[in-house]
């Protein structure tokens, strides 16, 4: 990793920040898994990537854009207001990081560029490529956006058939 001393200390405290309350029977990662239909393995890895993203935000002078997966972790964390604002932002990162939803199509190019910059910055800082299952390429990143909240008690979810070209 290409960290200076200050970065090292900051990364250490972000990495060690625990989002799960281990006494709770339905913790942060359980909720993340349930709401996104993710395996626990994927959740744990996505949480780690979220922490890396927040670290990058802290040390970058440019605005950064997360992948959708990392963004889902962020959304959920924002719901845990005490944990997010007091414990994470104020006490762990010493920085208030606000989340800004897109304002529409006109911003899409900006976000694409920002996202590519984020991937490059990730690689420079951590000396490794961001894992593609959590950080897809920028062409893919803004295609998978058609999400909606579905009540599974009232609806079946049937995946659309994919026609694959060889």
């Amino acid at each position: 990793m290409s960290f200076n001393n200050e970065h090292q200390i900051l990364w250490h405290s972000i990495e060690n920040f625990e989002m799960d309350d281990i006494e709770s029977s339905f913790s942060f990662s359980d909720r993340l898994s349930r709401e996104n239909d993710w395996s626990m393995e994927f959740c744990l890895r996505a949480i780690l990537e979220y922490k890396k993203f927040m670290f990058l935000v802290c040390i970058s002078n440019e605005p950064l854009t997360p992948s959708d997966e990392v963004d889902q972790v962020w959304h959920l964390h924002l719901l845990y207001t005490q944990s997010y604002w007091n414990e994470f932002c104020d006490k762990t990162m010493n920085k208030q990081i606000h989340h800004g939803p897109t304002r529409g199509k006109e911003e899409q190019i900006t976000f694409k560029d920002q996202y590519q910059f984020t991937l490059d910055f990730y690689e420079t800082i951590f000396n490794l490529k961001a894992p593609q299952d959590i950080w897809p390429q920028s062409e893919k990143r803004f295609k998978s956006i058609h999400f909606t909240r579905v009540n599974k008690e009232k609806n079946w979810i049937i995946p659309k058939l994919k026609l694959r070209r060889k």
């Binding site: 339905f26 349930r34 935000v57 963004d71 956006i145």
Partner: peptide, 30 residues
């Protein structure tokens, strides 16, 4: 049962939260 509720503490909204509008392609951070 587990996933049903959320609540507010001493500051913030009094009626818990009702789910934010979400976003499709987040604008990063400031």
């Amino acid at each position: 049962y587990h996933a049903a509720g959320c609540s507010s503490t001493d500051s913030g909204c009094s009626s818990g939260c009702s789910g934010c509008g979400g976003c499709s392609g987040c604008g990063g951070c400031s």
